[in-house]
Simulated scan of single mutants.
Amino acid sequence: MDATALATANFELLKKNPYPGRGLVIGRSSVDDAWLMIYWIMGRSASSRNRKFVVAGNTLRTEPVDTRQMDNPELLIYDAMLELPNIYLVSNGDQTRTIYDGLLAGGSFASALEKREREPDAPHYTPRISGMLDLQAYPGTVTLSILKANQANPANTDRYTYHTAKSPRGFGVGLTTYRGDGNPLPSFNGDPLLLPCAGKAEAVLDSYWNALNADNRVSLAVKQISAQDGSSRILVRNRFAQ
């Protein structure tokens, strides 16, 4: 199967999946000389749905829509995208800040995540998914990570780090937290998914928003990063924002 067919097939599976949970993709625009960083959140509970994305400069945060209706804010409210000079981070939890602080102190992406575990939300034990785009040296590198509960003993965490080759224009690689709906929710497994990044950032935002299950989608963001000078902008769509 060629790249276009594989990315299309994976995208069709995403469209049919009622609950992939949170997801991230890092890839390259098919029309601009730019990288794209995609992140979305979904929710089944009232607390999970009571969120929106807020942009402050080059940072993407989750915030409650109604502060009176928020359970487990330590798992639901966090910086989802942060950046250092020519380094761009995305994750589904407060490990974004852990990675940022670790890199700032001279450490590595992997060493920072050694301090973290899968989320403590038994019985789901939601995986922590994280990504880094490093443009310090041409042509740039992409690193993805997933921290998952060990199948034999969920008190332990399995750690997978992927160093993927530079995607051709129009493609990206991504992870989701779950394989689908269920109770408990089944964790993502397998290699990162090859997915499409077709069109400008606005078109990619529309495409992924329309692909996500309409009953469960909450917020979606696309960060466009210039391959020339590293400048960035973030586009956001919120379902429940007031």
Rank of each mutant, 00 (worst) to 15 (best):
Y19N: 04
H163V: 12
T164V: 15
R44Q: 14
H124F: 01
N183T: 14
F53N: 00
D134H: 02
N213V: 06
G107S: 12
L75A: 12
P168A: 11
A56C: 05
R51C: 08
P123F: 01
Y178L: 07
N189I: 13
T8R: 15
L175W: 03
F109W: 00
G106Q: 06
P18S: 11
A155D: 15
N10R: 08
A227M: 11
T59E: 07
R61I: 11
P154A: 11
G174Y: 01
L84W: 01
D101N: 14
L36N: 00
S219I: 08
L235S: 11
T98H: 02
S130M: 03
T143Q: 15
Q151I: 13
P73F: 09
G57T: 05
E114A: 04
P20G: 07
T143R: 12
P154E: 07
P120S: 09
A122S: 14
G21N: 08
A56Q: 15
H163T: 14
N238M: 01
S207V: 08
D215R: 13
Y162F: 15
R51V: 01
R237D: 03
Y125K: 02
F11C: 01
W40S: 06
E12W: 09
G102T: 07
L147E: 02
G27I: 04
Q224A: 12
F109C: 05
S29N: 06
T141D: 11
T8K: 15
S30G: 09
Y160H: 13
